[in-house]
């Protein structure tokens, strides 16, 4: 990571879109400064030679953890819908969807 790779306000604004957050101008400025200092602290990792080190994604090595294909109970939809911010006709109600959102 060199100086050109430092996170910019433009990056922060883009990341906010990805994260579905709306940030004010001031928040963008503040977050840029804060994220930059945290990421700069992270340079101690990149200073190490990690080329031949495999990544670890879980602390305990496990594999082939399965459940059998046996039906169990479902939840009563009324208990779930009563906690939903919007529902109608036994379904979750949301504002209109835009097309193109995958």
């Amino acid at each position: 990571m060199n100086n050109e790779n430092l996170i910019t306000e433009k990056d922060v604004a883009h990341v906010a879109v990805l994260a579905r957050l709306h940030l004010s101008e001031k928040e963008i400025t503040d977050f840029t400064v804060q994220l930059r200092s945290i990421l700069e602290h992270g340079r101690d990792i990149t200073a190490l030679d990690l080329a031949d080190i495999p990544p670890t994604s879980g602390p305990i090595p496990l594999e082939n953890v399965f459940r059998e294909d046996v039906k169990g109970g479902c939840v009563d939809k009324s208990e779930v819908l009563s906690e939903a911010p919007g529902h109608q006709e036994g379904q979750f109600l949301v504002p209109p969807l835009l097309d193109g959102s995958e």
């Binding site: 939903a84 911010p85 919007g86 949301v94 504002p95 969807l97 835009l98």
Partner: peptide, 15 residues
Amino acid sequence: VRFGMRVDGKNAEEM
């Protein structure tokens, strides 16, 4: 969408 707080918007994405 499914639980908790909602602040409405003119479409789902904005919500």
